[in-house]
Amino acid sequence: MKIGDRLRELRQRRKLSVRAVALRSGVSHSSISLVERDLISPSLDTLHAILDALGTTLSGFFLDFHAVSPPNPFCRAAEMVEIGRADAISYRVIGTGFPSRSMLMLHETYAPGADTGEAFFHSAQEGGLVIRGAVEVTVAGRTATLQPGDGYYFDSREPHRFRNVADEPSEIVSAITPPTY
Score class of each variant (00 low, 15 high):
residue 4 G to W: 03
residue 7 L to Y: 03
residue 12 Q to P: 00
residue 18 V to T: 15
residue 27 V to L: 04
residue 31 S to G: 10
residue 33 S to K: 04
residue 36 E to C: 02
residue 37 R to Y: 08
residue 39 L to M: 15
residue 39 L to R: 14
residue 40 I to W: 03
residue 42 P to M: 06
residue 45 D to H: 10
residue 45 D to W: 01
residue 49 A to D: 08
residue 50 I to M: 12
residue 50 I to S: 00
residue 51 L to T: 02
residue 52 D to F: 11
residue 52 D to E: 15
residue 53 A to M: 01
residue 55 G to R: 06
residue 58 L to G: 07
residue 59 S to P: 07
residue 59 S to V: 14
residue 59 S to F: 03
residue 62 F to P: 02
residue 70 P to A: 14
residue 70 P to Y: 11
residue 73 P to T: 12
residue 75 C to V: 13
residue 76 R to M: 12
residue 76 R to I: 12
residue 79 E to F: 05
residue 80 M to C: 14
residue 81 V to W: 09
residue 88 A to C: 06
residue 90 S to T: 10
residue 91 Y to F: 13
residue 92 R to Y: 04
residue 93 V to S: 00
residue 102 S to Y: 10
residue 102 S to L: 10
residue 111 A to G: 04
residue 112 P to L: 11
residue 114 A to W: 00
residue 114 A to F: 00
residue 114 A to S: 11
residue 115 D to S: 11
residue 115 D to F: 01
residue 117 G to I: 04
residue 119 A to G: 12
residue 120 F to C: 10
residue 123 S to G: 11
residue 123 S to C: 08
residue 124 A to T: 03
residue 125 Q to S: 13
residue 127 G to T: 14
residue 128 G to M: 05
residue 128 G to N: 02
residue 128 G to A: 10
residue 129 L to F: 10
residue 130 V to Q: 06
residue 131 I to A: 01
residue 134 A to I: 04
residue 138 T to F: 03
residue 141 G to V: 04
residue 142 R to S: 15
residue 143 T to V: 12
residue 145 T to G: 05
residue 147 Q to Y: 13
residue 154 F to N: 05
residue 154 F to D: 01
residue 156 S to P: 01
residue 159 P to A: 11
residue 160 H to Y: 09
residue 163 R to K: 15
residue 163 R to S: 02
residue 166 A to Y: 00
residue 169 P to V: 05
residue 170 S to D: 07
residue 172 I to E: 02
residue 173 V to G: 00
residue 175 A to D: 02
residue 175 A to M: 12
residue 177 T to E: 06
residue 178 P to R: 08
residue 179 P to L: 03
residue 181 Y to L: 14
